[in-house]
Structures are given as structure tokens and as C-alpha cells.
Amino acid sequence: MTAHETPRLQLSGLEVVLGRGVRANRVLHGISFEIPAGRTVGLVGESGSGKSTIAKTIVGIHAPSAGRILFDGVDIGRLRGRERARLRRRIQLIPQDPYSSLDPRRTIGQTLAEALDPRGASVRAHRARISELLRLVALDESAADRFPGEFSGGQRQRIAIARALAVEPELIIADEITSALDLSTQAEILQLFERLRRELRLTVLFVSHNLAVVRQVSDEVIVLLHGDIVEAGSAERVLSEPQQPYTQRLVASVPGAPGFSLEPQPGA
């Protein structure tokens, strides 16, 4: 990114406190980083490090107690009403759990139609776009007439990806999108996600505790520990030559993980 370009996403001094009174817990401590358009930043750390809190704060599930979140230079916290809702649609979250993220009472077509047009979720009106989205994630268009319970975990995650892409967002937040899946299915979803990332030139915040995955999909890596950034830099540098003891321990704990290759496998 050149000096005059505005980052797609910029966090500045972000603090988040969850709970109230004696139960209040400061989860994030002045987090600052940016993601240039078209780049992928991996956010890594152990459970409880604050990764998912950052993701949920960006999309408005949690409220910052201090700091700013800027999207294309616009302070999200200063927006209200329709302006805020409009900007939020440009940022889409792919959640961790493919089982609870879809309404079991709605067909896949209804779910995608609602993503396309929340006020008038007509499957008939959006049939062509729904079929296109399903093909994009390698599902048959007949999936539109079926319910979430008829699909495997990997297929549901494909549907969650299709839903996130429905409005052609400018930022995707992928929050541990493979952690609930078995190894072979994880590899399939990551291959799909990487293909879409390149073809659609997505800007991505990729949240994961798995460094083997992050290394293959990320341009930059940010390492979190107890709500603080302890190391950041290019994925190659941070994960090949970590400078901080905590990052060194994380990298040393990564197994060979052959199941996470993003290269198409023979017969796949």
C-alpha cells in the first residue's frame, strides 16, 4: 500500500470490555492494525486471546469501549441508522459453527434471498443470483430448495460462504471457519476459500488458532496474547523467523499438517 492509499480496514486503539461491574473484563487492550484492499491478514493466538472479540466488534456484535474502527477511512462508530446498516453490509462475517449459523426452518434459497434483500426475501425474484452463488461454492443449484439439516458440516460452511458473498462485500471476516470440521473437509473448504479469495480479489481478516492454515492463506500475520498484539509482520517472516517467545512457542507447536495443503489433491 502506497502512502496515499486509505486502508480498507483500520483499527486504532481498540479496547473492548465485556460484562459489567465486578464481572467486567477488559478483553482488548488498545489494538491497532490495518488491512489494505485486496490483502489477507491472519489473526492468530490461543483460545481467549481476543481474536473472535475483534471479529465480533468489527461487525457490531460487541461495542468498543475506546478506540476507532475505520472502513475506507470512515469511522463506523460515528454512523447511525441507514448509513450504518449500509456500511455493515459491505462487511460480512463467516462464522465458526456451520451448524448453528443457518436457520433450520428456512430453505437455503430463503436464507440466500434474505441476504440479498432483507426487506423482500423472495426466492423467485432472486432465483438466478441464488443459483449463481451456489455454483460459486461448488454446490448444485437444487440445494436452494433444501433445508440445512439435509447437508453435512462442510456443505453448510459452503452455504455460509455463499451467504457472505451474496452482497458482494468489500471485507470478509472468516472466524475459525474450519475448526468445527474434520481434516479432509477442512482442506476442501480452505481450497475453496483460497480460490474465491483470489478470483474475487477479496480483502480478508482470517481468524484462526491454526498457524498451518494461516501461513498458506495470509499475506500478513498478527499474533495476539491476552488482548494485546505481541508480534506482527509478513506471514513468511513471522512464521519462519518469529521474534517473540510466545510466537516462537506457537510456531514450534505446529505439526506438519499435510491435510492443510491448498494445492488440489490427486483425484479431488
Rank of each mutant, 00 (worst) to 15 (best):
I31K: 05
H4V: 08
I31Y: 06
R124N: 12
L133A: 06
G233C: 01
T2I: 12
R146A: 12
E114R: 14
S65F: 01
E220C: 02
V16M: 11
I58K: 08
A66I: 07
P95H: 04
I161R: 07
T178V: 15
P242S: 03
D182S: 08
R26C: 00
G120I: 04
R156F: 02
A162D: 05
L14S: 09
E231P: 03
Q191P: 03
P7R: 00
L134P: 12
R23C: 15
R20V: 15
V207M: 10
F151K: 06
E168G: 05
P104M: 04
G48N: 07
A257D: 03
P95A: 08
Q243T: 11
A144P: 07
L183P: 12
E241A: 15
L225M: 05
I61V: 15
D75H: 00
E34M: 09
R82S: 14
L165I: 08
G149T: 11
G227E: 10
Q248Y: 09
R198K: 14
D182T: 05
L192F: 08
T107M: 05
G13A: 14
M1P: 09
A235K: 00
I130P: 01
A138H: 15
L18M: 15
F33S: 01
H62C: 04
L9A: 13
H226E: 15
L181A: 04
A125I: 00
V204W: 06
G120T: 11
S131R: 14
D97T: 07
V41T: 09
R129I: 06
A235G: 02
Q92C: 07
T111K: 10
